[in-house]
Nucleic acid binder design. Structure first.
Length: 596
RNA sequence: GGUCCCGUAGCUCAGUUGGAUAGAGCAACAGCCUUCUAAGCUGUGGGUCGCGCGUUCGAGUCGCGCCGGGAUCACCA
């Protein structure tokens, strides 16, 4: 990195010019603002206390020192307290040549085999996935890919929340009113069928509660004593007691839900290294609760329920086990964390879970700490923001959710409609078109979601379809397709041009240097994205690069009407750009088309 | 009420560890296909970075206090 050289020689310069040893930390090197001439800018203000001279003079003196000691430096210019450095084209051309020959450009070559666990998706098996889950899945998948590009051993785990009172509700409704309906008989995806009964349960329960309230019960009593609620709770106890009949139905309905999820995952293009099932792990949590009781860090109330007192940590008392002995959510999370730690000894356990559960993870870590699990510190909750609709957040039970499968259908149709309107379907087979629509539709959706900073809430308006122009996924795909098209027209593959590439006579256009400089940043962007676990950085970068290329392409002939060496260079520059677009899109889980 | 997150153009979002006159896209308007894909490119208009005080040579960025919005504090997950 040339920045490191600038830093190093600046330190040297301060020693020679002013006889001061300065700390590399205070040397600020940034990109030069586009309105000025230069590639990098050294901000001299923080250095004045060492030079004891005015900003102008200090910058001049440092500039001259750099000019005679940094061979890559072409010239410099001082404006106010800013020392703008212009780097020689040769440096950029050399970088270009090295990068283009590095087939793994941008990714970390030093591999770290210590596992980093990324838990994401983690659906409940009582209802289908919605747009919020899509955000979760895309973030999880992308973050794992970004970590891999940073040389980490990312392990993707999906924890299936397949037990609990919510599952029992769907089961109960199906047992009572299902009439033996199956996904086949109903011609419905399994997860949607199970979800249908979850909603039905809720409706019937509400009716019961209303009835009870009319009879004079308080709202709270009515909710607690509604027969359906009691039945669901009994079902949960039977389940925990391994009741054969209950387990059979549970197995059946979970199977439907999981089969449905599987199809959604495949279509969305996400995958996992491992599936954990809450039903397998929740008992471990109970064991740890006992350990805590024995150690005296938890306590039991008269009704038999188990609690932990976190008031000393600024939180509240938290329930760990119900009075009837059944587990709650956090019970199994304690067991799961312990198992994962023991099984993998990971450097980090990243949980991709919505920001509504910040408190939950706070509690989890504090509990593990109380149990003496010092590794609680490796738990990192990536709390992403909600996807909101114009009328507020999505609510499954109120039917204000955007279903994941519907969403993908819609994106596919929009892609189809747009492509047809633009008249770009000639020379495609119908199979190729299907594939193209899927790539474009999903690309638009994924980019739309991932370009937003994960921790921020985001708005989705179903009335306005996701855009295909401007700062969008299709824009990026289009740029890639354009580049591929160039090679079809040029008649040879990039490697053929690379073989005969001669850069000796090339002088860079501003727009070419601009693209090379953006490519130059790529490894650092990948690194930043890995450190901050933010696919948004990759998305914004990919857009920036695409935009820059489109600008270039608009008024620069790539291989027509230019001499051979220039054409070779421009072709290879286009190829390199395309490679970075494809790679960065890949980190987002976005595929690119050969044509569109 | 306690804790946490957010507030940047009409809308959706960027804005590196504090640096130069705060950027994109959409929407609006005006242009550009006889040359490699116009899902593109160029231009115009649009801002009290919620408000105030402070730290600093310098604050959208850091600190404190307000205002507004959201999340959470369940024998829900």
């Amino acid at each position: 990195m040339i920045e490191d050289r600038i830093t190093q020689i600046t330190i040297e310069g301060f020693k020679n010019l002013y006889n001061h040893d300065i700390n590399p930390g205070i040397i600020q090197i940034g990109k030069t603002n586009p309105e000025f001439r230069g590639d990098f800018t050294v901000v001299v203000f923080p250095l004045l206390r060492f030079s004891k001279k005015s900003p102008q003079i200090t910058a001049e003196e440092l500039g001259n020192y750099l000019l005679s000691n940094l061979t890559e430096l072409e010239s410099f210019e001082v404006i106010k307290g800013f020392l703008n450095l212009l780097i020689k084209d040769k440096y950029w051309i050399d970088f270009f040549m090295t990068g283009v020959n590095d087939i793994e450009f941008g990714i970390q070559k030093i591999k770290d085999t210590t596992p980093v666990i990324v838990e994401y998706s983690s659906p409940n098996t009582n209802k289908p996935l919605h747009l919020g889950h899509i955000r979760n899945n895309l973030l999880g998948y992308s973050i794992a890919e970004i970590l891999k590009a940073n040389g980490k051993n990312a392990i993707k785990i999906n924890l299936i929340n397949d037990r609990g009172i919510h599952i029992c509700k769907s089961m109960l409704a199906w047992m009572k009113w299902g009439g033996g309906e199956t996904p086949v008989s109903a011609d419905m995806k399994g997860d949607h069928l199970v979800g249908k009964y979850y909603v039905l349960f809720d409706q019937k329960l509400k009716e019961e509660i209303t009835g009870l309230v009319e009879k004079g019960y308080s709202k709270e009593d009515a909710s607690n004593q509604a027969p359906l609620m009691k039945e669901a709770q009994e079902l949960l106890q039977k389940w925990e007691n391994d009741d054969n009949e209950v387990r059979k139905i549970w197995h059946l309905m979970n199977g439907w839900a999981l089969e449905g999820f599987d199809r959604t995952y495949k279509r969305l293009g996400v995958d996992f290294n491992k599936f954990d099932y809450e039903s397998d792990l929740y008992l471990l949590g109970k064991k740890l609760i006992n350990e805590g009781l024995n150690k005296g860090v938890f306590f039991k109330k008269d009704d038999g329920s188990v609690w932990v007192d976190l008031t000393g940590d600024g939180l509240d008392e938290k329930l760990l086990l119900r009075g009837d002995g059944t587990s709650v959510y956090i019970t199994q999370d304690i067991g799961t964390a312990e198992t994962r730690y023991n099984d993998h000894k990971p450097a980090k356990m990243i949980y991709i879970v919505g920001n509504e559960q910040i408190y939950h993870f706070d509690v989890l870590k504090k509990i593990l700490k109380k149990l003496g699990r010092v590794w609680y510190e490796i738990i990192f909750h990536l709390s992403y923001g909600m996807v909101e609709l114009p009328q507020g957040r999505m609510k499954s039970r109120e039917g204000t959710v955007v279903d994941a499968d519907d969403m993908m259908d819609e994106m596919f149709l929009t892609a189809k409609k747009t492509t047809e309107e633009l008249g770009k379907i000639e020379n495609f087979t119908s199979g190729e078109l299907e594939e193209l629509y899927a790539i474009i539709g999903l690309g638009a959706l994924k980019y739309y979601i991932l370009k937003v900073d994960p921790k921020k809430n985001m708005l989705f308006n179903p009335e306005e379809s996701i855009d295909f122009n401007g700062n969008t996924g299709p824009f990026i795909l289009y740029t890639y397709a354009r580049i591929r098209s160039i090679f079809r027209k040029a008649g040879q593959e990039p490697e053929d041009f690379l073989k005969i590439l001669d850069l000796n006579k090339i002088s860079l256009l501003e727009s070419e240097k601009e693209i090379i400089k953006i490519i130059y940043q790529y490894p650092q962007v990948v690194k930043n994205a890995g450190e901050s676990l933010s696919p948004a950085l990759i998305a914004n970068y990919c857009y920036e690069l695409s935009k820059s290329f489109n600008h270039y392409y608009q008024d620069t002939p790539i291989f027509k009407r230019v001499d051979g060496d220039t054409a070779n260079f421009r072709l290879i520059l286009s190829w390199f750009t395309g490679r970075i677009i494809k790679h960065s899109a890949g980190l987002l889980g976005i595929q690119v088309p050969e044509r569109m």
